[in-house]
C-alpha cells in the first residue's frame, strides 16, 4: 500500500503521534493506514536538485512496455 505524506504534528511519543494523526488528518476518511516518523529521521532531496534527479528518466521511454512493438493479434502479453 503506498503511503502519502499528509502533514506534520507534535506528539510526546509514537503512539500519541498516531492518535493525533488520526484526529488531525483523517477526519473525512482520507486514510486507511497511518505511518508516523520523527522528522529528525527524515532526509529529503533538495528541491533545487529536482531537475538533475528526476528529469533523466524522462527520455528513457525504453523502460516502459509500450516502447516495444508487437503485433496486435498477439494476446496476453
Amino acid at each position: 500500500m503506498s503511503h502519502k505524506h499528509a502533514g506534520s504534528l507534535h506528539a510526546a511519543d509514537a503512539e500519541m503521534a498516531i492518535n493525533n494523526a488520526r484526529d488531525v488528518y483523517t477526519r473525512r476518511q482520507e486514510g486507511v493506514s497511518l505511518w508516523v516518523v520523527e522528522s529528525k529521521y527524515i532526509t529529503a532531496s533538495n528541491p533545487e536538485e529536482s531537475e538533475s534527479l528526476f528529469d533523466p528518466a524522462e527520455d528513457k521511454i525504453y523502460r516502459h512496455p509500450t516502447f516495444y512493438d508487437l503485433p496486435d493479434e498477439l494476446e496476453y502479453i
Partner: peptide, 15 residues
C-alpha cells in the same frame, strides 16, 4: 465537527 475542524486548521497552519 466544525469547531474540531478549526482546531485542525490551526494545527496545519502552525506546522
Amino acid at each position: 465537527a466544525k469547531v474540531q475542524d478549526e482546531a485542525g486548521h490551526g494545527l496545519y497552519l502552525y506546522s
